[in-house]
């Protein structure tokens, strides 16, 4: 019984003492971070504080220097070999990575494919879905993000906001357990930010997706997050519910950062 309890409370994602260095620069410093299923966690902080690196590590786009990242209790960055944990090989990573989806600042759609092809390619080739199944799924998702009428266009013909909505649909088509959103509105013109945010809002409220979001949209983070983490110099300087972080920050750095950001608006 005790064991079952444990599994239930196992976080979906766990960063355990994760350290990342670029040369002599320590970007993440022994980071510990748990994300529960269905939780929406926002990461805020000054640039260079390691926010994006957190997502890139979880997506396995960066090699881990120290520590372990777990997904559903299983090590993602490492694998067991003779009873000890060693760095995971490509095969191990690929067996788990489909559970994680990521949306990038620069959308990164495949320019040589139509919107629909962008959304069916991975489900067919990676998950092994039948083409008509994948297409059905893609059409569903494109409808949800309001891009169905553009399904036969190439990305170059779409606005940034439209491309980003397609990128969200493309990531969702893999049915990830956790979605990583990396400054998804930073490259967008102000007038189209809203359309992307409303899609994310919908994912959060209707689909209850576990999300980890790096953002500069303080208002949005405050509105949708279950928890906000303020990063400073590769560490979580302060975390808590948005009401606490935005209304009554305890950490001096958080106060400084928020006042600087809010004054700028």
């Amino acid at each position: 019984m005790d064991n079952k309890e444990n599994i239930k409370h196992e976080p979906l994602v766990r960063f355990h003492e994760v350290t990342k260095r670029y040369g002599s620069l320590t970007v993440l410093d022994k980071l510990n971070l748990d994300i529960q299923a269905n939780e929406m966690v926002s990461i805020i902080g000054p640039s260079g504080s390691g926010k994006t690196t957190v997502l890139r590590m979880l997506m396995t786009l960066e090699m881990i220097d120290e520590g372990v990242i777990y997904l559903e209790g299983k090590p993602l960055t490492h694998m067991e070999s003779n009873g000890s944990l060693v760095l995971a090989d490509e095969k191990h990573i690929r067996s788990i990575r489909s559970n994680i989806g990521m949306v990038f600042q620069q959308f990164n759609l495949f320019p040589h494919m139509t919107v629909l092809q962008n959304c069916v390619e991975a489900p067919i080739n990676v998950l092994g879905l039948k083409p008509d199944e994948a297409e059905e799924r893609a059409i569903d998702l494109l409808g949800m993000v309001g891009m169905l009428d553009k399904k036969d266009e190439h990305p170059s013909r779409l606005s940034g906001g439209q491309q980003q909505r397609v990128a969200i649909a493309r990531a969702l088509a893999m049915r990830p357990k956790v979605m990583l959103l990396d400054e998804v509105t930073s490259a967008l013109d102000p007038e189209v930010i809203g359309e992307v945010l409303s899609v994310i809002r919908k994912l959060n409220s209707e689909h209850n997706l576990t999300m980890l979001m790096v953002t500069h949209q303080m208002g949005f983070a405050r509105e949708v997050s279950d928890r906000v983490c303020f990063f400073y110099e590769g560490k979580i300087a302060e975390q808590g519910p948005p009401s606490q972080i935005f209304e009554a920050p305890k950490n001096e750095r958080t106060k400084q950062f928020l006042s600087a950001v809010l004054n700028a608006n």
Binding site: R94, S98, Q106, N108, F110, N125, M174
Partner: peptide, 15 residues
């Protein structure tokens, strides 16, 4: 970034 998008969608190297 195209390589990274491929990784994020868990494509094999040959794909």
């Amino acid at each position: 970034q195209q390589w990274e998008a491929c990784k994020a969608l868990n494509f094999s190297v040959s794909r």
